[in-house]
Amino acid sequence: MNANNQMNGNAPVAGTLYDSSTLINVSPEGRIVSIFSGAWLLGSAISKVDKKPVQSLARLLGAGYLLYRGISGNGLFNGFFGKRKADRHARAVNIRTSILIDNPREEVYYFWRQLNNLPVFMKHLQSVEEYDPLHSHWVVKGPAGLGTLEWDAEIVKEYPGEFLGWRSLPGSSIATAGRVTFMDLPGGGTAVDVMLTYRAPAGYLGSGLAWMLNAAFENMVVQDIRRFKYFMETGETAS
């Protein structure tokens, strides 16, 4: 390879050796999410190191890899297998949780439907700004306020009082979709069923780390829904 090819960023010619450990093979969006997710895992590992040392160690290793990946732009798994570009699609993470709330269904639904209410009980949300009845802007904060992710979303299906479905808009730094169903309970109260699908930008983590983020996000959602129940029933925010 001559100097011109190197400066122009051309791929190595056949027979040329290059150091995959310094190759940038992660998309800008993937680097952002890697840093955010690594910081999140790091905070989770530190907070539970006394109670779950083995799990915390695994999360620390995962956090270290994700932070390295985001800061350097080099995915070690991609480099090891000779990949210069990330995969087109990343595996989706699906999270589902349900809870029973003692309030009437329409009251529960319409509080959720005002999307700017969500940060009241969803601690990972910094803000949700509604542009109009169908479009909104979401900001998610990392642990201890370290880093943020932002995206625009749209409501794609709604049955007032019963069902709400949304998804992020094309070009967002994170691909996400969700739906929440509200059902009457015999004798009063509401059953709330929440499903979230999260797909990172292409190539944002090695396939072996997907389970770690699934656990982190699932725990986050479950805790947020419990806070939602507490707020609806008491009018107070849970710690």
Results as ranks from 00 to 15, higher is better:
185 L>P: 00
144 A>K: 15
140 V>C: 13
161 G>V: 05
155 I>R: 15
146 L>V: 13
143 P>C: 06
167 R>A: 08
139 V>A: 07
160 P>Q: 10
142 G>Q: 10
188 G>V: 02
141 K>L: 15
134 L>Y: 13
167 R>K: 15
176 T>I: 13
166 W>G: 00
183 M>R: 13
168 S>M: 03
171 G>S: 06
129 E>A: 05
132 D>T: 05
170 P>R: 04
188 G>E: 00
167 R>H: 09
150 E>M: 00
134 L>K: 13
143 P>F: 12
138 W>H: 10
152 D>S: 02
133 P>L: 03
184 D>R: 15
165 G>M: 15
180 V>A: 09
144 A>T: 08
186 P>T: 04
158 E>D: 12
183 M>S: 12
169 L>R: 02
140 V>S: 12
137 H>W: 11
161 G>F: 09
183 M>D: 12
137 H>S: 05
159 Y>R: 09
172 S>F: 04
169 L>S: 03
186 P>Y: 07
157 K>S: 13
169 L>C: 08
172 S>L: 02
139 V>W: 09
172 S>C: 06
129 E>N: 11
150 E>D: 14
171 G>K: 04
152 D>M: 02
168 S>E: 06
138 W>F: 14
129 E>D: 14
178 G>N: 07
173 S>K: 11
175 A>M: 12
154 E>W: 03
174 I>K: 06
147 G>K: 05
180 V>K: 03
144 A>L: 15
173 S>T: 12
158 E>G: 04
161 G>K: 08
